[in-house]
Design a protein around this nucleic acid. Structure first.
Lengths: 347, 347
DNA sequence: GCCTCTTGCTAAATCCATTTAGCACAGCCG
DNA sequence: CGGCTGTGCTAAATGGATTTAGCAAGAGGC
């Protein structure tokens, strides 16, 4: 029996290399490389360009990224390092926006998750550096100050997404201050200047101690706009956990107090969801009896009846912007992304 | 003024290479490489091992991934190519599970989004190949047959995640048949054998024409278990769009017909969400008047009052499993992942 | 006719790790 | 002593691109 070096059907399928293209075009690798990478000031003839392009096309040439980046130190890839990818529905928007912007610029995105563990963060950064990424995005799923481990990144651009860091000045955040103002403006434009209750703000939040940086700005925007218009809340119910349960509990409590409430301004949609449940139990209808305005534009907001009017967290736009800043070299300062007003039936 | 070639503070920060390690250890690059990659049958001395390890440690050596993969043809990276990353909250679980399993195996994950566009799919595959990934996961956010473009992948392992393909036999899917059976079993165990209405199933779904493959299995499991237990639905309301609006509409319609309904079996949680709203308006309470069982374990399910008992889509486990199959070379067949029963207050 | 400049192109070095092939030496056998 | 085996290690080739330095031929100037 003859020894079969290579199974019948299995072609060796050698990848097409630059050398192959050059040979077919009758030129040197140097020439082929320069033409294919679109170098500006080569003195290669029009004829040479045509031949190389044709050869590359004909052979279906794709450059070997590893070989290229070995030489160039750039990989056309970026790292998206985030604390938590799942758990919050917010995550997706950030990733998706970043992904699209990266793709448009011919970059791929490595996604790395750290669970907020400093050791894993350090490891993630090293991994990213090993792979020679062209830039790093540090993202937090709840906007906050992140401590970025002290790994020397050289001149690698870094953007903080939905996060801030004392080490890296470039960050992309939602314009919460404006969002806060808009919420109040919305109420006024609907003719409601009194009987507004605030749901969810907590003093601790304003201190920014535990909760997110940006929420403090949201609260600040709300208060500033209220003050500017010489308005005051009829009630404020504070809580830590902005979840439906709390919204339900606080709203029930509020209603029992018998205050003249005409609108609820909720710090997020999950609270508002809980509030809906409480209102429904009390036989109150939205927006006829009580109007609702909220923040985030959670998926929930569209599902409620009537739909919840809310100031959206522009996650996708933020992700996109982060990549734009990173790859277009516009780093250096804080960028605020407008929070769109999503009008639905609750106001 | 003297020309300053290099700005004062800016160190050149040359990366540590294998050659540096070898030199410090007083050995050849060959030896250093063999030791650091943990080759089994080298005859290098214990002493050599110690010296190389110490040198690598001391210099903080990290291998250059590009250089390595240029030689080895493996990159310790995989591609996660999916139709849509956002829009469905499901997505995250798949990505997150895959990410974790990849990380555990020392791999990084490239995430690529195609929006289901064949041209972009082809492009994504090429991009992945260019980067020399060690495997590809094709994921769909709604389980379904995907047409994978005919790009020759050679011997590259491929796993279909939450999807099937005629081209690639390895796929990871939720065990919908079992899930369907469990839903019925749950109702019976709660003492409900009659007065069950089915919400959302549509004949078109069973044909699998447009909707997902696996939903057909879900319906099949439900019907099989009903039949086995000699039970029948008191009503079936069909619709295409399994969204809260439809759940609301169908449930309202059902209630107006005055049937003796004791339980609602909903094809997904969003339908159930709408159903809750309708029940609430009709003054019916869950689970006292009407019990609810559903599918997916959407985030919503936990927010409802009472919490929605539901058969979960095990996205994270599926993502994890896909990577395990991919990297441990266990490809070849369909893997079903158990759908956990999430008991909450609605049953 | 000699020199310089421009044009069009290429040889060879380089990036860094992996891997093949094989060298030098020691010990053992007969 | 010659031949053989085993041990410990290394030189050099390799992978595929980019980039530096520079060659050869023709044009133009004086």
């Amino acid at each position: 029996m003859a020894t079969r070096k290579r199974p019948a059907g299995q072609q060796p399928v050698k990848r097409v290399t630059l050398a192959d293209v050059a040979k077919l075009a009758g030129l040197s690798r140097t020439a082929a490389s320069m033409i294919l990478t679109g170098r500006p000031d080569t003195r290669l003839s029009e004829e040479a360009h045509t031949r190389v392009m044709a050869a590359a096309e004909q052979l279906g040439y794709r450059p070997n990224v590893a070989a290229r980046s070995l030489r160039t130190e750039r990989t056309q890839s970026i790292a998206f390092i985030s604390d938590v990818v799942a758990t919050t529905r917010y995550a997706m928007g950030l990733i998706r926006g970043a992904l699209q912007a990266a793709d448009e610029r011919g970059h791929v995105m490595l996604v790395l998750e750290t669970n907020g563990d400093p050791a894993r963060e350090t490891e993630a950064i090293k991994t990213a550096l090993d792979r020679g990424v062209d830039g790093i995005i540090f993202a937090a799923m709840r906007a906050r100050e992140i401590y970025v481990p002290d790994v020397p990144l050289g001149v690698l651009p870094v953007v903080m997404l939905n996060a801030t860091s004392s080490r890296y000045p470039t960050s992309v955040l939602p314009d919460e201050e404006q969002g806060g103002r808009d919420a109040v403006r919305l109420l006024v434009e609907a003719g409601i200047r009194s009987g507004i209750a605030l749901l969810g703000q907590s003093d601790e939040a304003e201190v920014g101690l535990f909760r997110s940086e940006t929420v403090a700005r949201r609260v600040h925007g709300i208060r500033a706009e209220m003050k500017r218009r010489r308005m005051a809340f009829v009630a404020e119910e504070s809580c830590w956990n902005w979840e439906p349960d709390e919204g339900y509990r606080l709203t029930s409590k509020l209603l029992r107090r018998g205050l003249p409430i005409r609108a609820l301004l909720c710090m997020n949609d999950r609270l508002a969801f809980g509030a809906y449940q409480a209102l429904s139990e009390h036989g109150l209808s939205v927006p006829k009896d009580i109007a609702m305005v909220s923040f985030d534009n959670d998926e929930l907001a569209a599902y409620l009846r009537p739909g919840l009017t809310t100031i959206a967290l522009p996650h996708e736009a933020m992700g996109r912007r982060a990549v734009e800043l990173l790859l277009d070299g516009k780093t250096g300062r804080e960028t605020l992304v407008e929070m769109p007003v999503i009008m639905r039936g609750s106001l």
